[in-house]
Write a protein that binds this DNA or RNA. Structure first.
Length: 462
RNA sequence: GGCGCGGUGGCAGAGUGGUUAUGCAGCGGACUGCAACUCCGUGUACGCCGGUUCGAUUCCGACCCGCGCCUCCA
């Protein structure tokens, strides 16, 4: 039985899909006006693991993750760049797909784009106006009337009077209540727009997710996820729009990833301390970044720092060391082990990847013990288990040598290194250990670590 | 101010009403020409104060501290 923490109820609940055996999940994706940053990576990886695990548990998962390809930030950035907004969004979508692929994130089942759903958005707004939940204002905008929805605030636990009393929301003459939010924004002179019954304009941010999720997954679906800062107002507003438009419960379970901090400080656009995925991947191997993300629970806050990434690298190295030089048995030939069961037990509990990683280490320890004792068959079988469980977390799928030798550059080519290793081994044979150690030190200075074993010498970038 | 989350050993990070998380780092031993890798062994951990209990890090209450949302941000 899988249990999932639901933001709505603030507790873990037994997961029972609406349709047996099938999971319908919607996750708020990127607004494509810039490169993806580490916070995006967190959400991407978290829901990738969730999807992989649900599939491992036999569910047919329909994972929909949208792309917001029209919005104020996009228009502003395109304007600054002096390019068509579609050129900007096309480029950023390509970059996003590259980043995802490098992090080992599987593509979602569907990736709807806001601009592809204008008709559905307009239809939903129309419904909301007709049922008295929205109104067209004098300025050409259409707003959602927040006080028309009695449950407003049920996700974020906020009270409408507190929100209205707060001075931070945008008070606009055209709105009936300061907490009302735009469903449709009237276009200014020369701005990108689509026709609508309320004049030319573009969709508001929240409505697109309501329209796309309903269109792709139906009025009610199983899981809705996203980043921590979307909880309010974005997700709260989605609930209001969708439940008013369809008359049905929107999403059963709401899942939110934890925030990323950088050196103990919140990572945010306004603080300017955010790292893009591609920047980080210049310094750290992608799988190390993924391991770092997966090694703590998806809801916890994590701190990005050099020390933490370096530790992730050392730990992942340990796991790959256990697989080094082994050809794992065929997975199909290795039945479910105690480790598989333990892995599922912890993952069933709200996707406890930190606990799951402990299982990976237990398996690696088995492999190492088997190798020490010369039990090759057992070692190969355990290796198959490790690779199998790793795949559910999106880890340990590389050839170990590829992981160790990396593609993060270095001044020495693999050929140069092999030559020096050969020279060192010749020296060792001649018992010229001073020369052998000199060569090893020379390599070490260039970040190359040698490992001698009965089978020969291997190397890795440290 | 309103609402929410959290404080675990040197660090990272799970979890549990009574018995080992795990990893990194450290220390001791084995292996090694020496290392690296690996194995074995090793640490008075659960913010503070009360309460419930035979027993609480784990449940309840107060307190202290940190963090997040309420404003573009995943």
């Amino acid at each position: 039985m899988i249990r999932i923490y639901n933001t709505l109820s603030q507790r873990k609940e037994e997961f029972k899909p609406i349709e047996p055996g099938k999971v319908r999940m919607y996750v708020c994706g990127m607004t494509v006006y810039d490169y993806c940053h580490l916070g995006h990576a967190r959400v991407l990886v978290a829901f990738d693991v969730i999807t992989r695990y649900l599939r491992h548990r036999g569910y047919d998962v329909n994972y929909v993750r949208n792309i917001t390809d029209i919005d104020d930030k996009i228009l502003r950035r395109a304007e600054e760049n002096g390019e068509a907004f579609t050129d900007l969004t096309d480029r950023m979508i390509r970059a996003m797909h590259e980043d995802e692929a490098r992090l080992g994130v599987l593509s979602p089942t569907e990736e709807p784009r806001a601009t592809g759903y204008i008709n559905e958005i307009v239809a939903m707004i129309h419904k909301l106006i007709a049922s008295g939940h929205a109104y067209a204002a004098d300025n050409g905008d259409v707003y959602f009337a927040v006080d028309s929805f009695a449950d407003y605030g049920k996700l974020s636990k906020k009270k409408l009077e507190d929100l209205v009393a707060g001075a931070r929301i945008d008070v606009q003459e055209a709105k009936r209540s300061p907490a009302d939010f735009a469903l449709w924004k009237a276009a200014g002179e020369g701005e990108v727009s689509w026709p609508s019954p309320w004049g030319d304009g573009r969709p508001g941010w929240h409505i697109e997710c309501s329209a796309m999720s309903t269109e792709c997954l139906g009025d009610t679906f199983d899981i809705h996820g996203g980043g921590p800062d979307l909880l309010f107002p974005h997700h709260e507003n989605e609930i209001a729009q969708s439940e008013c438009a369809t008359g049905h419960e929107f999403a059963r379970a709401w899942m939110h990833a934890g925030a990323i901090r950088v050196n103990k400080e919140k990572m945010s656009k306004s603080l300017g301390n955010f790292f893009t995925i591609r920047e980080i991947l210049e310094t750290y191997p992608a799988e190390v970044v993924r391991y770092f993300l997966v090694s703590s629970h998806y809801r916890s806050q994590v701190d990005y720092s050099e020390d933490n990434l370096a530790e992730a690298g050392r730990t992942l190295t340990k796991l790959y060391n256990s697989l080094r030089g082994i050809v794992p048995a065929k997975a199909a030939d290795v039945g479910e082990t105690e480790h598989d069961r333990r892995f599922m037990e912890v993952m069933d509990d709200d996707f406890n990847t930190a606990g799951a990683i402990a299982v990976l280490h237990a398996v690696a320890n088995d492999i190492n013990q088997h190798r020490r004792d010369g039990r090759d068959q057992e070692a190969k079988q355990s290796a198959a288990v490790l690779v199998r469980l790793g795949s559910i977390l999106g880890l340990l799928q590389q050839d170990p040598e590829a992981f160790f030798q990396g593609d993060t550059g270095g001044e020495l080519s693999a050929e140069d290194i092999e030559k020096m290793i050969q020279a060192r081994n010749d020296a060792r044979k001649g018992r010229d250990f001073a020369e052998a150690d000199r060569l090893r030190d020379e390599l070490a200075d260039k970040g190359i670590i040698l490992d001698d074993s009965r089978e020969g010498t291997t190397w890795r970038r440290g």
